[in-house]
Amino acid sequence: MMHKRKLAVLAAIAALAGATAVMAGPRDDILAGYAAEAGVTAFDAAAGKALFTGTHTGGKPETPSCTTCHTGNLTGPGKTRAGKVIEPMAVSANPQRFTDPAKVEKWFGRNCRSVLGRECSAKEKGDVITWLSSL
């Protein structure tokens, strides 16, 4: 017969695994959607980092980089130009990131147009999410 303590440990592991699966599910679905749209099987975290941390000239002069507001420390909070705190972008620091498809599309839309002056491609969105999920 199994000891009670061992049972409790197994239950905790099962609960953790379940929680992880719940958290990862929506993000994986979002990435799978972008992969299908882009026609790729994998994303490039390094390319995502380059896009996110790079300085761009095609967008609005007030926002030349994603880091203008999100800062270069993605596990910490950012700040909008009007002074409001932005929750961390790194999934490790903010597990809710990239779990709501409408929110992801809304903010990639606004912010890619602000920073780049154009829409981001599905590949670029997947690259950025992959990088921010790896930090």
Partner: peptide
């Protein structure tokens, strides 16, 4: 809203 004080807020 796409030109909202230096940002796109569409």
């Amino acid at each position: 809203l796409s030109n909202h004080f230096g940002e796109d807020a569409s």
